[in-house]
Design a protein around this nucleic acid. Structure first.
Lengths: 263, 263
DNA sequence: GAGTGGTCTAGACCACCGT
DNA sequence: CGGTGGTCTAGACCACTCA
């Protein structure tokens, strides 16, 4: 058999007829119409009712079928295009992307990720006091080096096994952190609970060999490779709200994420 | 001095008057109006004409001043919100984000990144033949394990110093790769040149200690920590076009990127 | 209550794709 | 050439924030 790279969609025809999709919006609902439609299309793709490569049917017709205006339908489609689930081609149509990769792009909390993965995360608080930040931490937070900050050092475990060693620096009047809270949940959840809206983060991911102290904390043999992450997190006003220096056991953790090519 | 976390914008007033911004669109230009406006706002932010925290002025007025409709102005603003440069708040206004972090989110080519950083990247091709893929590579590309693929192994250097060891697997009828081309430029540039439109990628970043072979290729001492990346790249039709297994010298390379919290 | 962004409509013309 | 998405208009009403 020759080495072929056949297109996955030989013709631009819908695999299932998208006209048969059960789509309807509820105008009495407080949920925006474009959002209702986007959710239904997303569900149809995940259920397999809209198969990869199938065409969606043109926007005008879709709008007429649903009793919506075209801009509203476009807005719904756009949100899925932004998520990478649909692709638009002028003169062709809107097509469901083939790859079924997990969507992961948002700023995620390690605790929530582990919880969602069923890994029973727990936290051991080593340190939770005011202290002076390192030079990088002060610079990242935009504070003078003499200004004290909240310093939190934790070991994160899954099923009782150490997974990561987390150092975090926060402006000290941002929120109060009780040890009990830090053991019960993640830092981001505590920040959200205090009305802080996270907006973006700058991350640097690297690797190095573990120090003796880290080997002890993480139960790794001497000379083990660790995955490192430095992160500065900003709220929706653009204020830095956290500087983090984390190390992960490379034998038990890796970063997984998806990138979209921006237009 | 007490530990204060003063808001960076004491009052919601523009630091510079955005009404004085020199904004104008050219209706004769083939460039979309919303895009022209977005570019000008972006430039104003980067120049400092729009200072972090300043308000943009309401959309209605901005539209009137430019002779545009409000949806068009909204579209321009939305592109900058998506980039993380602006923040909208209902009842308040549209505000320039404070943090001046580099925007980096797109799927990037190592070669282009190094070139842009002035690091004079070069490539040594170790291997460029058809061969059988590993099980993971075949699975990632959606091909049977018996199907031969193009296997490319390269060492990437900067200023003559090894930086990374790159193994790539491609469907073999996707494109022809001459050694000379691989030495002169990056793989993504060659793919684009062949009309392949990259769309998204799934990446896994981890760490491990180097093997003896890798130490030799990368001029690292035994037991050195390496940064590893596995990547599957898809084109705009959703077809997998590349599976990559890269290792980077942790002493000379780290991944840097920015995350936005999705709404 | 005044002002803001969030949503929505019913049209219009253009640019690009494939046949 | 017909059909598709890309862009744009001139309004409208609502929800939220803040004084």
């Amino acid at each position: 058999m020759p080495c072929r790279y056949a297109p996955l969609v030989p013709k631009h025809e819908p695999t299932h007829d998208p006209a048969r999709l059960r789509l309807a919006v509820d105008r009495a609902s407080p949920v925006p119409l474009y959002f209702q439609l986007a959710r239904q299309l997303e569900a149809a793709i995940e259920d397999g009712a809209l198969t990869p490569g199938s065409l969606l049917g043109n926007e005008i017709e879709l709008a007429a079928r649903l009793g919506l205006s075209r801009p509203t339908v476009r807005q719904a489609i756009q949100t899925l295009v932004d998520k990478g689930m649909l692709v638009r081609r002028r003169g062709v149509g809107t097509q469901v992307v083939h790859s079924r990769v997990a969507r992961r792009l948002e700023l995620s909390s390690l605790y929530d990720d582990l919880l969602a993965a069923g890994l029973h995360p727990t936290t051991r608080v080593l340190h939770n006091t005011r202290g002076h930040p390192s030079a990088e931490a002060a610079a990242a937070l935009g504070l003078p080096a003499a200004e004290p900050v909240t310093v939190v050092r934790r070991v994160r475990l899954t099923h009782g096994e150490p997974m990561a060693y987390l150092c975090n620096y926060l402006p000290c009047d941002l929120l109060e952190l009780a040890d009990g809270q830090l053991e019960a949940t993640g830092l981001y959840a505590l920040m959200r609970r205090r009305g802080i809206t996270l907006h973006s983060a700058q991350q640097t991911v690297g690797a190095r060999t573990a120090t003796d102290e880290e080997c002890g904390l993480l139960a790794e043999p001497p000379g083990a490779a660790l995955l490192t992450m430095l992160r500065t997190t900003y709220d929706d006003r653009g204020r830095p709200v956290e500087y983090a220096s984390h190390v992960y056991r490379a034998s038990r953790y890796a970063f997984e994420f998806r990138l979209l090519v921006r237009a």
